[in-house]
Design a protein around this nucleic acid. Sequence first.
DNA 1: CTGAAAGCGCTTACAG
DNA 2: CTGAAAGCGCTTACAG
Lengths: 366, 366
Amino acid sequence: MPANRKRPDRPATLADVGREAGVSAMAASAVLNGARTSTRISRETRARILEAAIKLSYRPNAAARALAQRRMNTLGIAAIVNDGGEFDHYFLEAFNGIISNAAVHSQTTTVFALHDWDRDSHRIPGFCDGRIDGLILIAPVFHGASARFLPTHTPFVAMHPDQPLPGVVNIEADEEPGAQAIVRDLLAAGHRRILHITGPRGRGGPERRIHGYQNALHAHGVDFDPDLMVDGRFSTEGGREVMGAWLERHVGQPLPDAIFAASDAIALGCMEVLARAGYNVPQDISVVGFDDTLAARTTAPQLTTVRQPLRAMGMRAVELLLERIRRNLGEPAPDASGTIVFPVEIVHRASVRPPRHPRPRIVPPV
Amino acid sequence: MPANRKRPDRPATLADVGREAGVSAMAASAVLNGARTSTRISRETRARILEAAIKLSYRPNAAARALAQRRMNTLGIAAIVNDGGEFDHYFLEAFNGIISNAAVHSQTTTVFALHDWDRDSHRIPGFCDGRIDGLILIAPVFHGASARFLPTHTPFVAMHPDQPLPGVVNIEADEEPGAQAIVRDLLAAGHRRILHITGPRGRGGPERRIHGYQNALHAHGVDFDPDLMVDGRFSTEGGREVMGAWLERHVGQPLPDAIFAASDAIALGCMEVLARAGYNVPQDISVVGFDDTLAARTTAPQLTTVRQPLRAMGMRAVELLLERIRRNLGEPAPDASGTIVFPVEIVHRASVRPPRHPRPRIVPPV
DNA sequence: CTGAAAGCGCTTACAG
DNA sequence: CTGAAAGCGCTTACAG
């Protein structure tokens, strides 16, 4: 038996295939991996190489290929993935769009999980070490501090609702008009005392939703009542806490007509607390959210909300990133930059009804 | 100005750092990337190298490193990620565990999205091309056909509820006892006519849940009624369809006492249909699910269900995979194999109450 | 049109 | 203890 030149327990290489087919590794590369030089290889040589490749179940090694081509065919996503073990719904919906569109372009997707944006953004440059060709940053906020850690040699696209940074492509939704429209709808249904539970104050997204809320009140001639706006954070747990505390502080007073929660997750927390306190949504009180994530569709009653097309936004992020990657590699590609704003849309579901007369009074918890 | 030997628009390499510090690239490798030979480098040389690296903001290139070390520090997940644009909740929970434990071990995670297991499993070998060190397969089923496509040179771990394949590590939950326990609880609460909506027939998971259901009935002396078991599939949409059709077929007859849905997603679909038909869960009818995914926690009322510890299972999959990778690389590591079964647990929430007397009759849809 | 050589950026034995 | 060489598996110019 002849000495086996192919090492036993390793995947076959181009050299192995070439040897098997009696040609150079380069010829094998040309026909198997479609290298530039694939132009002319005789039909029978080609067939022989193909056969050898199948026989040895050859697969091109991605790392070697990436090193030679400086192209990994992998897109990265840096995002806050979960919060206390629970998934971040904003991430989830965008991820859905990103991963499916990446697959369409034969790119795989790797996820870099961040816990806290301010604390973890310094890790971003470390992700850009040749394992990904480009990065999608799903960032709740861009402080000057974290902006320092933006990738330098790796193309990237941001999805975030804060102030745009010069020179970065940013994808966002038209939040302020969205907030204004959904509050306008509540007002049109007859609601007046609309409690707004905000997201983290000082960030672009939450502030825009607040402006939308206030604009709608103003346009409808309703005075803004500071007692009907309370600071929260973007989580179900946060919604529970804030709603519970507000009810406790207002025992004996009438229930608000409606609640505008700054996110679906917050709305979900509110609904839990309201249900536990014995109030019926939407008979006793209407609730609306923002985002149209999974949470909005899995509650009962289903939530009326402002739909951010996160899936489409994620798909678009992939397109833009791919363009940037191509351009970075010297191929011609359009040079999109600046902010891309997606329109939002109000989704009417079952959590809104005209207010009840008289309004129920808030009773102490049992 | 001296000729700049470092090419302008590319990340710095080890050679650049060495040049800057006046040492060989190898010396730089030794101190920066902790190569084997890092044993003795003088303090000042080390300091000089470190300084040069910072100055040039050097990052080791992952592809080059992977090629030399045959280690990418990346774990792959192949799974059915979404189904008609909606996320697969089973995947989601497991992914949560996988990604967080991978991060603990400084591994990144790349996701290979499959649409249909039977149709897409042939793509699996293509994922194992050196871009990942190991693969976690979240597979609904292992047919003989798809088993042909298991990775050959890449370590892998399966999470699936079907028959174990020889030589593969499989992680699963103790489903049959779980199903039995939750049905026993329904029986103990006084329910007798319990409708079971199954998952896809013929697969391990759904069949085990059916056995658990039947065992519980039998143990309680209740005859199995074929009219109270109906074939479904694992989705909210499936739950809606099956529940709706069942109600239509039984107009004029009493509502079942309770429903045991083979997954939370199915239960969610049922609850939607029941709510729309005017029935109150749990006053008119109790509903329980299986899995304890996000869906079970975001419904109102929250769902009583069988908790599969998917997050813990995902974390464990990472541990086992890492062991296999180490062993594959010749390092000593335990040789776990076979099936690892996680215990399940009944989570009591608000969707179950003792049956109402008399049972409501099913009325035609309006 | 085809093959031998050089190179991608790193690491691992192997001589000095 | 240190450096020069070879190699990981692929591709890209460059001579024949």
